[in-house]
Structures are given as C-alpha cells and as structure tokens.
Design a protein around this nucleic acid. Sequence first.
DNA 1: CTACGTGCAAAAGATTTGCATTCGA
DNA 2: TCGAATGCAAATCTTTTGCACGTAG
Lengths: 158, 158
Amino acid sequence: MQTKLKETQLSIIKEVLRQYLQKKKFRNTPERYTILEEIYAMDRHFNVDDLYIIMMEKKYHVSKATIYNTIEIFLDAGLIRKHQFGEKTQITSSYEKSYFDKQHDHVIVYKKGSEKEISEIIEFCDPRIQGIKEAIEKAFGLDIESHSLYFYGTKRDA
Amino acid sequence: MQTKLKETQLSIIKEVLRQYLQKKKFRNTPERYTILEEIYAMDRHFNVDDLYIIMMEKKYHVSKATIYNTIEIFLDAGLIRKHQFGEKTQITSSYEKSYFDKQHDHVIVYKKGSEKEISEIIEFCDPRIQGIKEAIEKAFGLDIESHSLYFYGTKRDA
DNA sequence: CTACGTGCAAAAGATTTGCATTCGA
DNA sequence: TCGAATGCAAATCTTTTGCACGTAG
C-alpha cells in the first residue's frame, strides 16, 4: 500500500503541474513530467547533478539545461524547495520535493574535527518561527512570503 | 569623535587579528591588515569583487586569490560573517564585519513585481531564536554553534 | 504551422589551484 | 635562511546562454 500511496501522490502532483502549466500557458512537455516523477521518487535532498546522473542511468535523455530550466518552473509552482546547505563550503544548490511536506527547517550537523564535512541533516519544525515572522511583518510593514532557518552544529559528546 | 571611535575600534580589531595569527602561527602580512581595515571602513555587506574593486581604486595591490584566502581566515577568526542572500538568484557570497555587532538576522525585501531584485536588506534580532536553538540542542543532543535565519518578502501596500 | 522547449556546446561568473617569486620570522 | 603567502593565470565547477532542431498546441 506504500506503493499505492506513492501512485496516488504521483498522480496528484502531476495534476498540480498540469494545472500550473496550463495557467502559465507553458507547454506540457514529457521532460517536465519525467523529471517531476524522478524527483518525487527520491527520498532525499538532491542537486542538479544528482538528478542528471539518475536520469542518465535510467536512459532518459534530458540535458542539464532542461533540468535547470525545469527546476525553475517547479520552484515557482511550489513543487520543490531550494536550499544552500553548508554555509562553510558548497556552492551547489540543493533541492527537495515539497508538495506533501509541511514547511520545516534544517540543522546541518558537521563531523567533529573537520568543520567542512556534513555528517547529517536534521529536519525540524518549531512553531515559534511563526511568531517571529508575524512580529517582523508588523514591525516593518512587510509581507513575508517565506523563510529559511539553518542551525549549524556538531553532535554533543556522550 | 566618530573618527576617534573608529580609530579605537580599528586598533582593537587589529589586535584581535594579531592575536589570532599568533595563536595559529600564521604570518603577519601587511595584506591581511590592509584588507581588514578596508572591511571595517565599509558600512555595508560586501562581496569579494566589491572588496577587490575598492582595493584597486585605492591602489593597494592585492590579488583576488589573496582576498579569498584572507576572508577564510577572517571567518575563522570571527571577524566577519558570511551570507548567501537572495535565495532565488545569486551565487555570490556576501560578507559583513561582525566583531562589534551583535548577532542579527536579515529580511530580504524584494521589489514588488520582479521576484528577483532585492530592494532592501533589513537587520533584526529576535530573542525567540535562542529558545529555538536551545530546544534543538536538547532534542537532538547537539551543540549548535551558529545559525542563519532569513525572511523573504515584499513591502506591504500602504 | 509557429513559437516554445530541448539538446548541445560554448560562455559566463565565482572560487580554487599551481607555480614562481617575495618576504616575514 | 626557508617555508608560508602572495600574485598571476589557468583550471574547475556550477549555472546560463545561443542557436539549430524538434514538437506541442
């Protein structure tokens, strides 16, 4: 039934994409649906290269240019979220599927000695962030549309 | 007296750098002090290119490689902080001096129509973030060393 | 049929690296 | 003196762009 659920979810997000494309008067290209499926079949964060390699391995011919282009669309459609993990290193952007998730934030856990290697990424969700958001909106007369919060740390010694 | 204050601050941070270099057994090169002065003479966020251009204009010969190298040192010394503003765009890292500031977070305000252009960056400081931090540390058994929080939004209509 | 979207390769932009030279300790 | 830092240029890596072709509408 896990499979069943996945199938149902898949048809939902495809429908979301379909409606988005329609509204924006973009075309229903097969590439866009294939990439969407692959993203939603994955269970972790990914970057463009990860995705490209996966597509290659599965013999779907999709160029990186198309992946970049498509990701832009998915971001706008709210189907994925973008991250810049690893403040210390990393230029590469990461992404994750977002449609069935609730908004959450991340803790980047570094390996003890090496300040550069990420050992783990933990997700969490703290309601207090909402309170901060509302305070900011009121204080500065803004509409806050999104936020990103990262904590950086290490595993505490036992 | 603004000038006086600035001079005093300058001698303090130079001393901080001196001690840091000494502790790490790095060399006291003039470039490192020159770059530090320029950074602390600035009053806003900057990126490597900004800094490079400023150095050029003032006829200090410093290569970009050295700037990158030096910035790494200053980060580790706690003399500057690194940012990745503009989740939607921007690859370039920004930095800001940090020694006399208290830790603060940022709101990235985008221009109304164009989702890509930043119109303003607001700094704020909300103590609730501390509470979240402590909750995370307790919940996951971590030592959190730093965080970054960005809100993204637009000016509210009058 | 007519753009829009794709693939490919080249370009662009940020950062890193290699190497010869300089210079602080 | 001698190894660490610098400057310069080349290399690398991610993302963007230009152009010819294919295809959705």
